[in-house]
Amino acid sequence: MTFSLVARCAETGMFGLAISSSSPAVAARCAYARAGVGAVASQNVTDPTLGPLALDLMAEGMTAPEAIAAVQSQGKFIEYRQVLAVDKTGATAIHSGPNSLGIWTQAQAQDVASGGNMLANDGVPQAVVDGFLASTGHLGDRLIAAMRAGLAQGGEAGPLHSAGMLLVDKVAWPVADLRCDWTETCPIENVATAWEIYKPQLDAYVQRAIDPREAPSYGVPGDE
Rank of each mutant, 00 (worst) to 15 (best):
L166Y: 06
A192W: 03
A204Y: 01
D141F: 01
D169E: 13
L143C: 15
T136E: 15
V175L: 03
L202S: 05
T185S: 14
V191N: 01
D141W: 04
L151M: 12
N190L: 09
I197A: 12
A209D: 08
A209H: 11
D181F: 03
R148Q: 15
H161A: 12
I188H: 00
G140A: 10
G137R: 07
D141L: 03
A149K: 05
K170V: 13
A194F: 06
Y198T: 04
Y205P: 00
E189T: 01
A145G: 09
A146K: 06
M165R: 03
Q201Y: 08
A146D: 03
R213S: 15
G137C: 11
F132I: 09
G131I: 08
V206M: 12
N190V: 05
A152E: 15
P174L: 10
H161Y: 01
T183H: 08
T183E: 08
G150W: 09
R142Y: 08
L166I: 07
G164F: 02
V191H: 05
E196C: 02
A176H: 06
T185E: 15
P174V: 11
V168I: 08
I144H: 05
Q207F: 00
P159V: 05
R142P: 04
K170A: 13
S162Q: 07
D177R: 07
L167F: 06
I188G: 02
G164C: 04
S162H: 09
Y205S: 11
A172K: 12
L151H: 12
V171F: 04
D211L: 05
A152L: 12
G150H: 06
E196P: 00
A163R: 04
P212A: 14
A146H: 07
L167C: 07
F132T: 07
P212R: 13
A152Q: 14
D203I: 07
Q201A: 14
L143H: 05
L139M: 02
G131V: 04
G154Q: 10
N190R: 14
T185A: 14
P159T: 11
T183S: 13
S135R: 06
A176L: 05
T183F: 09
Y205L: 15
P200C: 07
T185I: 01
H161M: 06
A204G: 12
L202V: 06
G131S: 08
W173D: 05
N190P: 00
I197N: 03
T193D: 13
Q201F: 11
G158T: 12
V168R: 10
N190Y: 02
A149H: 07
L160E: 12
E196N: 13
A145P: 04
A204V: 02
Y198N: 09
E189R: 00
D203R: 13
A149P: 05
A146T: 02
R213T: 14
G154E: 04
D211H: 03
A194K: 15
V175R: 02
A149E: 06
V168Q: 08
P174D: 09
A149M: 06
A163W: 02
R208H: 13
Y198D: 13
E189Q: 10
A134S: 15
R148F: 01
D181N: 15
R213E: 14
R208N: 10
P174S: 10
L202Q: 15
L139G: 08
D169I: 00
H138V: 10
I144G: 04
R208Y: 05
P212V: 11
G155C: 09
Q207S: 06
I197V: 14
D181K: 01
V206L: 06
V206C: 03
L151E: 14
